[in-house]
Amino acid sequence: MAAADAAVQSTYRGASTRPFVVRNARVILAYAILIVLLLVYWQKAPQFTAREWRSISNQGMTLTIASLGQLLAVATGGIDLSVGSMVALSNCIIASMGDPENPDRSLALGIVAALAAGAFGGFCNGVLIAYGRLQPIIVTLASGYIFAGIALRVQPNPGGSVPFQRADLLTGLQWDKVPRSLFVLIALLVFWALFKRTALCTRIYAIGSNEGAAYMSGIDVVRTKIWTYTLTGFFAALAGVFLTAQTASGDANAGLVYSLNSIAAVVLGGASLAGGVGTFVGAIAGAYTLMLIPSVLFFFDFYKQRPLSQELYKGLILLAAVSAGALGVWRIRNRLERL
């Protein structure tokens, strides 16, 4: 079949699919930045062992999972500022439900409760955005405050009970060599490959690309948006599960950074906040780039003297990547449309 497809392809004149490199320029740029950072890390690190790999892999994983959820909201042309609070809420639910007497059962129940809370919180966001015609940025800013408030009620002080040996199942080393979080990443990639083949995924990108045309093609825009934010909430809660495994405790303030970082990660990975464009593969590179910047900087003297300036470098890299991606705007010949 592939051969037949290729034979047909060669007969098309005029516009054909642009070369792979051109189509995926933003994603390739994101991986180029990531690879440079990894090379520097590898050069500078005193010893580079499986443990180093494990710590890098774990550090980026919570953000990667949260970014998958954020990507879906961004692909519809929306945004979800409550992702970080949902990570925190999920983390606090699991830790607070932990029972040292009955660790496995309480952990399983805690995870189920956290994921259900995530999906439900996202569903509420979706209903308000889709039915209420409210702007996503303000709905999720408000619901983010609410989730953060609930997280503080559930777990007023950092702590709770999380069994270490179970946490190790997600964050440890397999065969003493391979970080187990890599398996999580592979599972997410398999999910993404399947999800891309669902009608829901097409609809999400169609709405973000041209909502009017999507509506005129008979797409149920309201339902699609509700599904999208439900999934975003679910993945935020899943990110909270991984964060719990990593920190082995519950902290209502630990998750909050993931709202803005997940937006930065999907944009670094080539997504457009205007909607319709962006991939999970790119978001992975974006997430790990953001997480590696402080680790890499730590090897440099100029940074050690002023360690608080890591945000400065994150900001510079984000701006540089986004600017490179925006160069195409100069090809637009109507100045009104460049605005």
């Binding site: 169609a206 973000g208 690309s209 041209n210 005129m216 093609s217 319709g276």
Partner: peptide
């Protein structure tokens, strides 16, 4: 005015 979705 076209009713196609540009990114699909």
């Amino acid at each position: 005015e076209l009713s196609l979705v540009p990114d699909l």
